[in-house]
Design a protein around this nucleic acid. Structure first.
Length: 423
RNA sequence: GGAGAAAUGGCAGAGUGGUCGAAUGCGGCAGUCUUGAAAACUGUUGAGGGUCACACCUCCGGGGGUUCGAAUCCCUCUUUCUCCGCCA
């Protein structure tokens, strides 16, 4: 959520910048500023009335104490009108505030200067491509065939237990996935992140805090009885750890990593590319979250990109990094780098990580602030990224490491799996 | 799930319906003393809105109510604790 004072100060710049997202901001901004003015003016009137009635109440108290009952009753009569006014103004004010809030929720984050204009993923900017695409054996299979051949993942079983998009991992498939989780968490903690385990269900306030609500309501599973949401990413519970907190400079940076299953309804995204592990309703992911001082955030973003690159290099998987264009950029993000893994057998790129700087957009909703050296309060910057989304890494490993004798296991994972070949 | 108790500032902990944004202690910050540190002493120390800055307004778990006036009374929700039951 943008800050009104920033909209006021940079109105035309913001309008221009939001065009990169194909978001027409002029009218919304005007309404926002108007409502903010109204809110302030109403608040001022209300304050004056409250002030007057506070004074009167005190006088009445004094008069009762000194036994001047009649005078007190006279003053009492005067308060009736004030009460009515304050009630009316109070309602006006909270209505203006609510309308303002609703409008602010509609405005996406201002894209960073380096974000390319564009409408679809076609316009994303490839900034790096690395890793060798292996030459596969003649009869190379896509991962869903491999999963079946070696009995690693059972998709039909998931259908029976739950429904489409909830696979059952078995044997070496399950173990390989567990190995990846441990490997990622170890690498992350070695890089200075603190490991956390967080709830998989969150309340409404948390959903609003990180921006899944209200914009992506339909994408989350909702538990109606208790009005809770299954997390679509660990970003939600982890970032919300610090909701409403006023931190000190010493607390920063905060670097957290956590493994969680993620649940996504993926409403409306059925179609060609959902086979196998490509798109699931439940999947595992290890997440990185950074809470930092504003002046550090872009340096930290680069560090996160380097860190994720390191993982892919160690796994020896071919990947590329994209800078997302305005049209593809997430609602809350100012700058996002997507990592895509090349799925050799499918001959296509699979998104496996998304590393973003939200600047103050989430912090403003979450009310995460800190006191700087001059004891001034300011919103922090939040960042997050996946390290990594498991099923697609698994898909990439199966496909790219397949040989005629079976599927090889990358060296760095062997200590975790305890085997070096799936045959 | 049943019965009871509670929720106050970073923490601990007072608070009779009427200058209570709130005693006191600890912690934090600044200073005095000291070669330095500790101790001791002195001062300072919640958040949001508003203002150039004051003034002023709001906030004592959340929401609602009674009252001229609520941290204090009533209703409701949530959470925590104790006991009982159930249970990974």
């Amino acid at each position: 959520m943008l800050e009104v004072k920033h909209i006021r100060a940079h109105q035309s710049d913001f309008i221009e910048a939001l065009k990169k997202r194909n978001f027409e901001a002029e009218a919304v901004f005007e309404s926002i500023l108007k409502l903010d003015d109204k809110r302030k003016a109403t608040q001022k009137q209300l304050d004056e009335i409250l002030s007057e009635s506070n004074t009167l109440s005190k006088e009445i108290g004094m008069l009762f104490k000194s036994g001047e009952k009649e005078k007190a009753n006279e003053l009492k009569a005067k308060t009736a009108g004030l009460k009515e006014d304050s009630k009316r103004l109070g309602e006006e004010m909270s209505q203006a505030a609510a309308e303002l809030q609703a409008l602010l929720y509609q405005v996406p984050n201002i894209p960073h200067a380096s974000v390319p204009a564009g409408k679809t993923e076609e316009d994303n900017q490839e900034i790096l491509r690395e890793g060798e695409v292996p030459t596969l054996p003649k009869n190379a299979l896509p991962h869903w065939e491999l999963a079946k051949k070696y009995d690693l993942i059972d998709f039909e079983l998931g259908n029976k237990i739950t429904g489409a998009g909830f696979p059952v991992y078995k044997g070496k498939g399950a173990k390989l996935q567990r190995a990846l989780i441990s490997y990622f968490l170890d690498k992350n903690t070695q890089a200075g992140y603190q490991e956390v385990q967080v709830p998989l269900l969150v309340n409404e306030a948390s959903g609003y805090g990180t921006g899944q609500l209200p914009d992506k309501e339909g994408q989350m599973y909702h538990v109606g009885n208790d009005d809770l949401y299954l997390i679509p990413t660990a970003e939600v519970p982890i970032t919300n750890i610090y909701r409403d907190d006023l931190l000190t400079e010493k607390d920063l940076p905060i670097q957290l990593t956590g493994y969680t299953p993620c649940f996504r309804r993926e409403a409306g995204s059925y179609g060609a590319h959902v086979r196998g592990l490509n798109r699931l309703h439940q999947f595992d992911k290890v997440e990185l979250v950074n809470i930092v001082k504003p002046e550090d955030s872009y340096q930290v973003l680069d560090q996160m990109v380097k860190h994720v690159q390191g993982l892919l290099q160690e796994l020896e998987l071919p990947y590329r990094i994209l800078r997302l264009c305005g049209g593809d950029l997430g609602f809350t993000s100012a700058l996002t780098y997507d990592f895509e893994l090349f799925s050799t057998a499918q001959d296509r790129w699979l998104e496996i990580s998304s590393v973003s700087n939200f600047e103050t957009f989430q912090a403003n909703r979450l009310k995460i602030r800190y006191k700087d050296a001059q004891k001034k309060k300011a919103l922090v910057h939040t960042l997050n990224g996946s390290s990594l989304a498991l099923p697609r890494v698994l898909a990439g490993l199966l496909e790219n490491y397949q040989t005629e004798n079976g599927i090889l296991i990358p060296k760095v994972l062997q200590p975790y799996t305890g085997f070096d070949l799936i045959a």
